[in-house]
Each structure stands twice: as structure tokens, then as C-alpha cells.
Nucleic acid binder design. Structure first.
Lengths: 185, 185
DNA sequence: GTGGACATGTAATTGGTTACATGATTAG
DNA sequence: CTAATCATGTAACCAATTACATGTCCAC
């Protein structure tokens, strides 16, 4: 049982999903490719934590819809109370930012502008999803025992993070621009 | 050449270091254990991007002090201008936060309180380092061509991130507490 | 006609963690 | 006397990415 396994269980306890859906919606709190997810779902099924049914589709490939079992629920609930291992973040951009003094203003500005674009798209997506949730569930989102609570607080966290990233990039850009002006006087 | 290799080069271009030092100071923008770093330093040395000298120490093991070569500098500089791959973050706590509705208020509060402690320590450390930098280099930190610039902007970013994390945890805790009160009336 | 969404899987490789290994010094 | 810091390294294992593999439909 690795972290990804618990991540899958925590999504499936809210609603039954296909591996394809899990791959897409996992992004908020974990990242994994389908090549890691499909074998793991099979493993969890063998361990009696999941079951699945086929849904036949014409024109599209058949779906395998996975559902969590009582055993899966138990295993997940017990795990939540254990101490989480420290967060790991690996971001190539930060290496480049650290070494940004080696390059020219144009290259530096381009890097930061692309970073802004990248996060701006995330912000738009995030705001849309938050608005959808608030419209659909309203005050119920602030009930810690409701199944949408976790997703809601995570999206709020991510939005702040993404907005701060853009602000920070703009701050750095302002320094870069300011410096270029001074140099050309 | 993987991301870690560039992370090592970007540290070594600022000043020569031992593998041990690199392991410690890398934390801001990458994470790696010494078992990954030592073999990679050897590999970079074989590729003529690094050189090293032994520093004999009595009572402590000998040090290998690595220095970047002109080739290493060139390879690093060229890499900076290339498009960075998207950030990857894996945080077990977020899985637990997502599934927090499954547990009781006490367990949930403990998780969030421990998270606050974890980040508060980081904030203290970060503030100390920023203060040190500002004292030592002052306005020079805002010069994008100075070697401290990258480190400074990264620390500023990290501090904000860590402070926001604590604020968010406190917001969630306030919801949890508020809800417990209502339930017990 | 090309690329993307849908949908699932395996194989090969690289990246990263844990454990093994050594050894002196210092602080609690 | 136990744990932590300094200091470097290897081996075994697990986690994750990239590449291989298949097939239809729809939009541009």
C-alpha cells in the first residue's frame, strides 16, 4: 500500500470511477500516469479493497467501473489518522529561477511570463470548479462530514497557491524590467 | 542529464561545495538523498562538468570539494533558456485532507495542528535566512545579475507559501471547531 | 488527414528511497 | 550511553515516466 493506493481509495469512496477518470481527477493532490494507475487498481481488486463491473460501450472502448469495498473503506479510514510523510515537490522552474542571474533579461522574462500563463490557466479552471461546487452545494460545503468538504478545502488551497505564484512572478518581472531600464540609461 | 544534475550545477556555480552540503541546501528547489547525489557528482565529474579536491580533516572524514568547470557552466547556461517541465508535487497530507470527512473532529484537528507545527518551523527558518541575506547584501539582492538574486527570490516565494499554508490550516480548523460547537448544542 | 478525447493495458527504463556500511566527535 | 552531526559511499528495492500497443469517433 503506497500513497497512490490511498489516493485512489479516497476518490473511490466518494464515487465509483474508471481508471481513466481517476487519472484525470487525481491532479489536485497527487500525480500519476495511467500506466501506474491501471496495474494498481488491479492489485487493489486482488486485495479485496475494490470491485469492478464492465460497462459496454459501442464506438468507445469498454469501461471498468471500480467501486470501493467495506475492507477498502476500513483500510482508508485507519490510514487517515496516521502521521503523513513530509511533502515532496520537484519543480524544474525553481532550479532555473535559482540560476536566473546567469541569463539575460529577455530569457528571464520569457521564463516568468510562461510561468504566469501556465498558472493563469490553472486559476481559471480552479475558479470555475469552485463556483460549480458553491452553486451546487452552498453552505453544505462547510460541513466537515459532507463528502464534498475535502475537495472544497483543497481547491480553495490550490487557488490561493496559484494566485500567489502569479503575483510572485509579476514581482520578479517588475524587478527585471526596472533593472533593464536603469541599465539602459 | 536529469533535473537533479542541473540543480547541483546551479548550486556549484555559486560556490564550490561538498556532496554533504549540497544534500542539505538543495531543499529549496529540489529534494534528494545523499545516495542519489554522490553517484551523480561522480558522473558529472566523469563528464568533465565538475572537478574535485580532497580536503583532509582530522577526526572527521575527508571532504571532497566539488567545483564547476567551464563546460559545466556552459551546459547549465544553455539549459536555463529551455522550457521547464511542469512541477510535480506529492503530499500525503492532501490525500488525508481530501478524505477528512471520513474521520472525527479530534483526529482531523490533530492532523491540521501538526501541519501547522511543521510549517511554522519552516517559516522561522525561512525568516531567519531572509534576514541574514538582507543584512549581508541589502539592495544588491534586487540586482538580477547578482548571484544571490535567485536564492533570494526563491526564499521569498517559499515563505509566502508556508505562511499561506498555516493560514489555510487555521481556516479549516475554525470550520472544524465551529461545527463541533454546533453539534454539541 | 491530423490531432485530441475516450479507454485500457504492458514493457523498459529512469528516478528516488531505504537499508547497509564505516567511523570519530560532541552534546544531552 | 544514546543520539546527532559530520562525511562518503554502495546495493536492493520500490515508484514513476516514457514508450509501445490498439481502436473508434469527432472536430478542424
Amino acid at each position: 500500500m503506497n500513497s497512490l493506493a490511498y489516493a485512489l481509495l479516497s476518490m473511490l469512496i466518494r464515487k465509483s470511477c474508471t481508471g481513466y477518470e481517476l487519472t484525470q481527477f487525481l491532479e489536485t493532490f497527487w500525480q500519476a500516469k495511467h500506466s501506474q494507475i491501471y496495474p494498481l487498481l488491479k492489485k487493489l481488486e486482488n486485495a479485496d479493497m475494490l470491485t469492478f463491473v464492465y460497462e459496454h460501450q459501442t464506438a468507445k472502448p469498454d469501461k471498468k467501473i471500480y467501486t470501493i469495498t467495506p475492507k477498502g473503506k476500513e483500510v482508508l479510514s485507519e490510514w487517515i489518522a496516521t502521521k503523513p510523510s513530509p511533502p515532496v515537490s520537484r519543480d524544474e522552474f525553481l532550479i532555473k529561477a535559482y540560476a536566473i542571474w546567469l541569463t539575460d533579461t529577455e530569457t528571464a522574462s520569457e521564463l516568468f511570463n510562461e510561468r504566469i500563463d501556465f498558472y493563469q490557466k490553472k486559476i481559471d479552471f480552479r475558479k470555475e470548479k469552485i463556483a460549480e461546487m458553491e452553486l451546487a452545494y452552498g453552505q453544505q460545503l462547510l460541513d466537515p462530514t459532507a463528502s464534498h468538504f475535502g475537495r472544497y478545502i483543497l481547491f480553495k488551497r490550490k487557488l490561493k497557491l496559484e494566485q500567489d505564484e502569479v503575483e510572485w512572478c509579476q514581482w520578479v518581472l517588475s524587478i527585471l524590467v526596472n533593472n533593464t531600464e536603469q541599465a539602459s540609461i
